[in-house]
């Protein structure tokens, strides 16, 4: 079985997000980079499914050359191969991203294609909730989203999604696209040895053949919203504050 996990490099933001002067992006000076927890789970799932069923696990991203850092995280988590759809670092719209991925994976390695394509349910930064769905549409594969439990049996994916009061269960034949949420599994910690090995592994760089275009949804600028910085009313220190807590809960919030 060939499994692909698609990820996205994003800044590891601290307690306060600072924008560049032109308000087009986050000022990343001094910031590290990471990926969404959803996507760490996608990589873990790809590797774990291949450990169970055999085959190979691939990790792919569309991003600047620096995104090889996140691909190497995937390799250190025991993915077999990594592919970078290299851009100049500009932000691609969800439609353009899906076009590039659908086109790009058709050009990878052999002609067999992937049996299972995993995406995060939504990216950490843009949260468009649609790249996986659009890739599935372009490839003509079935797609389920927001999955927190996945089993593969005899070429069928059994996927579960949380709903109020329980879980919806889907069964779909592979090949399929599955977008996943944190909680699906516990991503492994890569050992130092695995990280060192990943550093030496080759990353295939593929130039996207499609355009970045804004496609109807065009970012004008970013804004760091005003936060309410009015200081909290300190009710007291330690257990002596309890009578005031009860008063607040009874009179202000009315839950007692």
């Amino acid at each position: 079985m060939k499994v692909l996990a698609c990820i996205k490099r994003v800044p590891n933001t601290g307690a306060k997000i600072v924008l560049t002067e032109d308000e087009q992006r986050i000022d990343t000076s001094g910031l590290g980079f990471t990926m969404s927890p959803h996507e760490e789970c996608a990589i873990e799932e790809a590797v774990a499914q291949v450990e169970t069923h055999g085959g190979s696990a691939h990790v792919l991203t569309l991003g600047p050359s620096e995104a090889d850092e996140q691909l190497r995280t995937g390799l250190a988590m025991q993915a077999d191969e990594a592919t970078l759809l290299e851009t100049d670092g500009e932000e691609w719209s969800p439609r353009a991203t899906a076009d590039a991925i659908a086109d790009g994976i058709g050009r990878l390695g052999d002609d067999e294609g992937f049996d299972l394509l995993l995406f995060g349910n939504e990216s950490a930064d843009a949260a468009n909730y649609q790249v996986g769905v659009r890739v599935a549409n372009e490839l003509g594969y079935p797609c389920v989203t927001g999955i927190k439990d996945l089993e593969i049996e005899d070429g069928t994916a059994i996927a579960k999604r949380e709903v109020s009061g329980g879980e919806e269960v889907y069964e779909l034949d592979l090949p399929a696209v599955v977008t996943v949420k944190e909680g699906l599994n516990e991503p492994r910690y890569a050992s130092m040895r695995a990280k060192m090995q990943a550093r030496r592994q080759e990353i295939e760089s593929v130039e996207p053949r499609t355009e970045s275009g804004s496609d109807g949804l065009e970012k004008v600028r970013l804004e760091a919203p005003e936060t309410d910085d009015s200081p909290a009313e300190i009710l007291g220190e330690g257990p002596e504050a309890v009578p005031r807590i009860v008063e607040i809960l009874a009179e202000e919030v009315e839950v007692v």
Binding site: T13, I17, D125, A127, L217, E223, P225
Partner: peptide, 19 residues
Amino acid sequence: ELRRNRWGGSLIEHARLTG
């Protein structure tokens, strides 16, 4: 002309939607 949440709402994107 819209505003949408990014980063779960810790950033706001001003955007134009056309088509």
